[in-house]
Design a protein around this nucleic acid. Structure first.
Lengths: 158, 158
DNA sequence: ACGAAATGATTGAAACGTCAACCAGTTAGG
DNA sequence: CCTAACTGGTTGACGTTTCAATCATTTCGT
């Protein structure tokens, strides 16, 4: 085994910032969603479908778009389907697969909540950053995000 | 009501990055903690105590240091105490309050896991950023974090 | 074509987080 | 003093997340 790669001071500051956002900011965002009978994950699901061609996505693709596990998707889909925000249809090509489609009602709910959510994010995050900081943040975070979506990364390295 | 403050393209990119980190990277970090009989929240608790003068903190301060609610702290403290990583003592000054102290065993567990965690964070986050990006990230995130810890922010504005 | 492996999706149990209600001890007002 | 309001902390119930096990369907190897 080699020497531990400790975080330097700057890295610690960045990591601590992420922790604060995870543990303080996101829960606040979640509370707003809950006040509108939604979870942030469900919001992500609705957004992914609204942006998809034909308002439809195979469940596996949907899970990937919404950054969730399949099982979490199944669980969260339950209420959305029973409530009529999303419709499920079996894929004619592949007997295992299902397609999810956002309904008009689902689209309406999304449109109602989206501006509230946007305001929330502005208030909690971007109101405290100038243009340069925001650009730098987008640059750094998307670099990390791109790699995180390369699933290779998660097959523990040697 | 006024016009919605939609996120511009850069802001969306930044926000999407945060979501990927929340929904993909943090769970991966959490799995590593779990493999060592710990939750990330508990790790935060142990770190806060290890860094505190006398290895001791009042529970309210501990909750704040670890970015958790009091009730979550209580719940997560249970195992840590019963397992001997932390000791609770009643405050002599204030009959309501309690102090938490990290024990030698707790410190040992922390020291065992810290390097694994550091390696994980490097691999998942900082290995994909150069020095400038890391500095910019630290700058922006800590600006957001500082504000998030001003609790005023969370008393929904008018 | 036939069985084995892989894929798409669901299930259920156990652990976790949240929230509101609560208890106990302390502070402050009259 | 005595009670009301407040603070520190705990509890329990409910909904969510995770994880491993499962089922059905499709693909692959030979």
């Amino acid at each position: 085994m080699t020497a531990p790669r400790w975080l330097d001071e700057t890295q610690q500051q960045a990591w601590q910032g992420l922790l604060v956002i995870l543990l303080r900011v996101f829960p606040e965002v979640e509370r707003t969603f809950k006040a509108n009978d939604l979870l942030s994950v469900q919001y992500g699901i609705l957004v992914a479908l609204a942006d998809a061609p034909d308002h439809t996505l195979r469940l596996t693709e949907l899970a990937d778009s919404a950054n969730t596990s399949q099982s979490r998707l199944t669980h969260r889909l339950r209420n959305l389907v029973s409530r009529g925000d999303i419709k499920l249809t079996e894929d004619p090509q592949d007997g295992r697969a299902k397609n999810a489609t956002i309904t008009a009602a689902g689209k309406r709910r999304l449109d109602r909540i989206a501006p509230i959510h946007a305001e929330n994010v502005q208030r909690l995050i971007f109101d405290h950053l100038d243009t340069e900081q925001t650009a730098a943040l987008a640059d750094a975070l998307s670099a990390v995000a791109v790699k995180a979506c390369d699933h290779e990364l998660f097959k523990h390295s040697t």
